[in-house]
Design a protein around this nucleic acid. Structure first.
Lengths: 240, 240
DNA sequence: TGGTATTTGTCCGTATGTATC
DNA sequence: GGATACATACGGACAAATACC
C-alpha cells in the first residue's frame, strides 16, 4: 500500500503512536535517531513527521523534539474527515450500511443548478438522490451532481454501490482535492420524508466540490445529515 | 511579515492568484522557471507550491504542471477556517462585533469537567461564558476553559477584548495546533436565553482543543452558533 | 554564567524516477 | 525517442532554540 519511503516511515510511526508505544506528551526519537533506524536521509524522516503533524498526531518543538499530541479514543467516533467515501468510512468503523437510489436523472445545467453547483450552464450532468442507511437507520440524504464527461456511463446500479470506487477503478480517475462547507439548514419536506428526524427541525449539511487529477471540478454534492448522528472533524495549524 | 524564503514565494504566488494574474484553470510557471525567477533552489519553490496546494489554491499534475483551482469570491463568505480568533475573522470581513462576558469563574477540574474537556482532574482553570454579537445580533455562545497555569492572570476585562491577543502579545504564548469537532445539538434553555434562535430547536456546536508551542493543551472551547449564521469551511486532499 | 552538544528549521545542489507532451 | 515537468531521495551546510554540564 505504502509505496514511497516517507510513506512507510509515516505509517510505521503512526502505528506506534496509535498503539501507544509512544505515549501522549512524550517525545518521538530524534530525527537523527530515526535516520539511522530507517537508513534514509533526514529529509525523508522530516517528511514523514510533517505528515504526522498535518494530521494532528505530533507537534514539532524547535530545539526540543517532536511531541506526541495524539490522545487515543478521541477520534474513534464515526468521522468523515479527509477525503473518504461513506463506504470507506463506514467499513473503517465496522458498521453495516446500505444505499438506496431514490432518483437518477440526466440533466443539462440551467441557471438555477449553476448557481448552486457552480457548474457552467449547458454542461451535461447526472443528478442522483441517495439515502444512506447505517446500521439500519436512514442517516443521510445525498444530492449528487456529476459531470457526465468525467463520470461517464454512470448507472443506478453503480450509484447503489460506490461511485468513487467506479471512478477510480473503472475509469482511472483520481480524486485529489475536495472543498467542503458545513452548515445547518432547516429540514425540508423531502428531508422529513426520507430521514427519521424525530423532533429536530434542522439538519447538518455538507456541501462539497471535488476535483480530479486534471484539476477539473467534476462533482458537487450536498449531504444532508440527521443531526444527532453527525460529526465533522478538523485540524488547523497556526502559520506565523 | 514573511520571514523565510519559501514563505515570501508562497505569499507572492498567492497574491498573483488572488488578483487573477494567473487565472482559474491556468498553469503556474514551471518549477524551473520559478527557480530562475526567484534565484533559489527547487526545494524552496516546491515548499511554496506545497502550501498553496494545502490551502486549495492549486493542484499539482505530474508531468503537466501546477493548475490553479482558486475561484475568486468563492470563499469570501464569513468563514472560520484555520486558526483565527473571532475578532480576526470578523475584522477581515469588516463586520461590527462585540463580546459580553456573562460568566467568569476560577475552578478546579472535577470528574464531570474532565470528561468533557480531557483536562486532568485537579487542574486549576478559568471557566468563561461569552456571548458574541456580530452586527448587533447575538450569534455565538462560547464556553471557554483555559488552563490557569498557561493563561495566567486572565480577567473579565481581557475576556471582553481578545484572549488570544493577550496570550500572544502579553504572555508570549504561541498557539500552534487546534483540533476541532463540529456537531449539531439540541438547543438548551441557556442557549435560548442568550441567542435569538427563532424557531430553530438546535444549533451548530464547534468543540475545540488548542495546543501551545510546548505541545500542551491549554484550552477547551465549546462554541454554540445560531444555525442560520454558521458556516465551517474545510479542504481535504486524497492521499494515495 | 557560559560553552558545548543536541535537536529542529531552512536552504542548497544533485541524481534518479515517472508522467505528459 | 526526446524534451519538459513534477516526485522522490540523498547529502551537506548553517541557523536557531534548547538542554546539559
Amino acid at each position: 500500500m505504502a509505496k514511497t519511503k516517507y510513506d512507510q516511515i509515516y505509517a510505521e510511526l503512526r502505528t506506534r503512536i496509535e498503539q501507544q508505544e509512544y505515549g501522549f506528551q512524550e517525545l518521538l526519537p530524534s530525527e537523527n535517531t530515526l535516520v539511522k533506524e530507517y537508513g534514509c536521509s533526514r529529509n525523508t524522516v522530516r517528511r514523514a513527521i510533517g505528515r504526522l503533524a498535518d494530521e494532528g498526531y505530533v507537534q514539532s518543538l524547535h530545539g526540543k523534539g517532536v511531541r506526541i499530541i495524539y490522545q487515543p479514543g478521541q477520534l474513534s467516533e464515526f468521522m468523515l474527515s479527509g477525503i473518504e467515501s461513506l463506504k470507506e468510512a463506514v467499513a473503517r468503523n465496522q458498521k453495516e450500511y446500505r444505499t438506496k437510489v431514490v432518483c437518477f436523472a440526466e440533466l443539462t445545467v440551467d441557471q438555477r443548478i449553476s448557481a448552486r453547483t457552480t457548474f457552467p450552464v449547458g454542461e451535461e450532468i447526472y443528478y442522483i438522490q441517495r439515502v444512506r442507511y447505517i446500521d439500519g437507520e436512514a442517516l443521510i440524504l445525498d444530492h449528487n451532481y456529476f459531470l457526465k464527461e468525467v463520470a461517464r456511463d454512470l448507472t443506478p446500479e453503480i450509484a447503489e454501490q460506490s461511485i468513487y470506487a467506479y471512478l477510480e477503478q473503472e475509469l482511472g480517475e483520481n480524486i485529489v482535492t475536495t472543498k467542503r462547507k458545513v452548515t445547518v439548514e432547516r429540514a425540508s419536506q423531502i428531508d422529513e420524508m426520507y430521514l427519521e428526524l424525530g423532533d429536530y427541525n434542522c439538519l447538518a449539511v455538507v456541501s462539497s466540490m471535488t476535483y480530479n487529477a486534471d484539476g477539473v471540478m467534476f462533482e458537487f454534492t450536498q449531504s444532508r445529515h440527521r443531526p444527532d448522528k453527525f460529526a465533522f472533524y478538523d485540524l488547523a495549524h497556526r502559520v506565523k
